[in-house]
């Protein structure tokens, strides 16, 4: 059903740290690798070796420049489904293929009933849903539903592939509905925020802002004056004289 659950028992989601993300794309490729063989299989690519290669991916990492001058910095920005509390992608679905789970809040597409009308992709402001041109249906982040509850995996692997792959620990997985969870505490401590909150879809995933730069790091300039290293010896004084003559 496309009617939303009034409340979900858990609010499973991701917390993404924009301070430590280095834009290595490891989460992107591990997501593609896991999901092209898992719940969302296949994640088809069109013309992978042709002139116009493109395909269905569930996680994309943009790189932006933010600010100017000393404040300016590069920010790598992973973008995937935010598993909103009131997702319009679910309510617009005409077939009920799109749904939000009452037990953990994960937003999923039933691959057996999706008709590929793409209306959910129009309804999503975050570009989280991609159409699989070969499969003819919509694909989206499943929060690795086939990993997080998978008892055949060792406990440390029961988290989304992107979280597991991140080499800098910039991605965190947990229950954002539980105020005592590690992710909730992280969000509280670091000022985690929602993307486009004015649209009112109440994303579950949170983004941690880049930490402010240390002042010295941005104001200390490279030395510009010649280093005067003379220790007073005749050879040093000779070199200093040569330097002076040559610099004149």
């Amino acid at each position: 059903m496309t009617a939303l659950p009034l409340a979900t028992e858990k609010k499973l989601g991701l917390v993404i740290d924009l301070d430590t993300c280095v834009g290595c794309q490891a989460c992107v490729t591990s997501c593609k690798e896991w999901n092209t063989g898992g719940y969302s299989a296949p994640l088809s690519d069109e013309q992978p070796y042709g002139a116009d290669p493109h395909g269905a991916w569930l996680n994309r990492v943009h790189s932006y420049e933010a600010g100017d001058g000393a404040k300016g910095r590069t920010v790598h920005f992973p973008r995937s489904c935010l598993h909103c509390e009131t997702p319009a992608c679910v309510t617009v679905c005409p077939t009920g293929a799109s749904y939000k789970r009452g037990e953990d809040g994960i937003v999923l597409v039933n691959p057996d009933t999706c008709i590929g009308c793409k209306l959910c992709s129009w309804a999503c402001p975050y570009g989280a849903r991609e159409y699989d041109y070969t499969d003819g249906i919509m694909k989206k982040c499943t929060l690795c539903i086939d990993r997080i509850y998978n008892e055949t995996l060792s406990p440390e692997d029961r988290q989304p592939a992107c979280v597991r792959a991140c080499p800098t620990g910039a991605r965190h997985f947990g229950d954002l509905g539980d105020k005592e969870s590690a992710v909730s505490k992280l969000v509280a401590a670091r000022g985690g925020y929602d993307l486009l909150p004015e649209l009112g879809f109440k994303p579950t995933n949170k983004y941690l802002p880049p930490r402010p730069r240390k002042v010295e790091a941005t104001t200390r300039a490279a030395p510009t004056e010649a280093i005067s290293a003379s220790d007073g010896s005749p050879a040093e004084r000779l070199f200093a004289w040569v330097d002076k003559v040559l610099s004149a």
Binding site: H62, Y64, E65, A66
Partner: peptide, 17 residues
């Protein structure tokens, strides 16, 4: 959209694909 406005003006540096 990115939540990065507090740093300053935001512009794309490198696309994801």
């Amino acid at each position: 959209a990115t939540g990065l406005g507090s740093i300053g003006r935001v512009r794309p540096l490198e696309p994801p694909h």
